[in-house]
């Protein structure tokens, strides 16, 4: 699923084509390489690491929530923006889903719709604050982050909401196996990523996401209604927040009002490791998924190596620095200076 306009008319000579793709996507090739190396390293150190049980439940399943959040925020970051509200937004969506599913006796689909609608609305609010009120994205979403945190606590009256008595099979959304051996959460993550990748690379919304992040003023003067598209992009991010919330509640069997804060930073880290530029205009969903997997493999592997949690954090910090630094060095070597 590569960038449609970059690959457009790519009927160039066969052998140089692969080279060209590698040269252009070198950042992702390197990220994928690091993922493989990390995986091999932990597998050699502890063979239990590559058992399917660990891979599916330990690594892939634990990527679902931050992975979905990272997919959503990739769009926002490519526009040159940021969304700090996705973490506590997850908590707010989870609580709303829990409340309404229990109160209205909703079925599974109804619950998912609630999550997506609440997340989407949160995104619309962010978009309106950023475009109509012209608040910087960092400030606007810092505000909604705090507001969402508070609302989640208020609505839940600071108590977790359990699904067991509300709706049958809620746990199956993430933990069932529609495809044998593969937890649904993992399937949903990859389907969500594929859809996002198609949206980003092949649709009008995706083109405008890149255009706004490259130069929003020029985009506006080209007749694009930048404000409306930005609201749509933040709403799309919010929809992924809603999905992430559904996955979280399904895995836990409950909605926790205080679970979510900090997820936004995990998601942003995954996006950055995946090679998306924090300055906007460049990025990919594939990179984000690789970035999210690198984080999960690292955390899971270090845990299996019995490294203390405190030290795990330090290692993750170093990895982020290394990922972004090596990307910068590579770009500078390629003469890609702005």
């Amino acid at each position: 699923m590569s960038d449609v306009l970059k690959t457009a008319g790519e009927e160039v000579q066969g052998e140089s084509k692969i080279k060209e793709i590698i040269r252009r996507e070198i950042g992702q090739v390197l990220a994928l390489g690091s993922l493989v190396v990390l995986f091999a390293f932990f597998s050699i150190m502890r063979p239990v690491f590559y058992s399917w049980a660990n891979v599916s439940n330990g690594i892939l399943m634990s990527t679902t929530v931050t992975g979905l959040l990272a997919i959503g925020i990739t769009f926002v970051i490519i526009t040159g923006g940021i969304d700090l509200s996705i973490g506590t937004g997850t908590a707010l969506c989870a609580i709303m889903v829990g409340k309404l599913v229990v109160a209205w006796h909703l079925n599974l689909a109804g619950g998912v719709i609630v999550g997506v609608v609440v997340g989407g609305l949160l995104g619309v609010v962010n978009g309106i604050l950023i475009t109509l009120l012209k608040l910087p994205p960092f400030i606007a979403t810092l505000a909604t982050m705090k507001a969402a945190q508070g609302l989640a606590l208020i609505i839940s009256q600071m108590r977790p909401i359990h699904f067991a008595d509300g709706v049958k099979g809620w746990d199956q959304i993430a933990q069932g196996n529609l495809i044998p051996q593969i937890p649904n959460g993992v399937t949903i993550l990859f389907v969500g990523a594929t859809i996002a990748s198609i949206i980003l690379n092949r649709t009008v919304l995706g083109r405008y996401t890149f255009a706004i992040g490259s130069n929003s003023e020029a985009t506006k003067l080209s007749g694009v209604k930048v404000d409306r598209w930005l609201i749509a992009i933040y709403a799309l991010c919010g929809i992924y927040v809603g999905l992430a919330a559904v996955m979280l509640t399904s895995r836990l069997g409950s909605a926790q009002p205080d679970l979510g804060l900090g997820y936004e930073l995990e998601a942003i880290a995954a996006v950055i490791i995946g090679g998306t530029s924090i300055l906007g205009g460049k990025g990919s969903i594939r990179g984000t998924i690789i970035g999210a997997l690198i984080m999960s493999v690292l955390i899971n592997g270090l845990r299996i190596l019995e490294l203390q949690q405190e030290w795990q954090y330090v290692v993750v910090g170093i990895v982020i620095i290394f990922a972004v630094w090596s990307d910068n060095v590579r770009r500078r070597r390629a003469g890609d200076v702005s």
Binding site: A8, A211, N215, E217, A218, T219, L221, S338
Partner: peptide
Amino acid sequence: FGLLLIQNVTFNVIL
């Protein structure tokens, strides 16, 4: 005000 410098010619032409 006119160009998406970090994008390619096609993208700019159809913007």
